[in-house]
């Protein structure tokens, strides 16, 4: 008992022991710090509808480098090709459907551009064809987008499919995107449609 008394010296005669005093001081300081950070952070918070939560591609900046296919953390990229029918020219010789230098306009493997066969087409009327993307097969490589934007109207474009996107804190495609086309956008513009403009 006597030894205990030695260890617990009193601070200037006050009834609080020295270690307790430091402990309380620490608690108060930590509390103040937590409160300050909390208040400061709370002031910066924006409502979910306003905050930029969703990763999306700006198709005006996209140069179809092909990194979307390989850089996404998903086994198959969350980026898929979309088709704006209202921009499409419904051409027979489609730069997004056929390889350049395609000899015959048929579905033979040597003429097709899409590596997974995700683009299909349907005859509408002479001379128009409707093109459709099967997004289950698409891997976001952007070959067709490149073909369509260099020879066609640019109706094919890449977008991040929000229901597939894991919404990483930092999008790994955005970090390697050469044109800085990927950024966070708000709920209202979670998709940048080409045919809704």
């Amino acid at each position: 008992m006597k030894k205990d008394k030695d260890n617990e010296k009193l601070v200037d005669g006050s009834p609080i022991k020295r270690r307790d005093f430091f402990r309380k001081l620490g608690t108060v300081m930590a509390g103040a710090g937590v409160a300050a950070v909390g208040a400061g952070g709370a002031a910066k918070v924006k409502g979910n509808r306003k905050a930029d939560l969703y990763w999306q591609i700006d198709h005006e900046k996209c140069i179809q480098c092909g990194r979307c296919e390989t850089s996404c953390v998903m086994p198959v990229s969350a980026v898929r090709c979309m088709h704006a029918n209202k921009v499409c020219g419904y051409c027979d010789l489609c730069g997004g459907y056929y390889r350049t230098n395609a000899k015959e306009l048929n579905t033979a493997a040597e003429n097709m551009l899409c590596p997974t066969g995700a683009i299909s087409r349907k005859f509408v009327e002479e001379p128009y064809f409707e093109y459709t993307i099967d997004e289950a097969l698409c891997n976001g490589c952007g070959k067709c987008v490149k073909g369509c934007s260099s020879f066609g109207n640019g109706s094919l474009y890449l977008q991040v499919r929000q229901e597939l996107c894991l919404n990483c804190n930092e999008c790994s495609i955005a970090k390697v995107c050469p044109s800085g086309a990927i950024s966070r956008v708000s709920y209202e513009s979670a998709y940048k449609f080409k045919d809704h403009a």
Partner: peptide
Amino acid sequence: SLPIAVFLFFIIPIV
């Protein structure tokens, strides 16, 4: 813009 969920995930464990 700081999403509210991120803020809460930061501050709740600290509190």
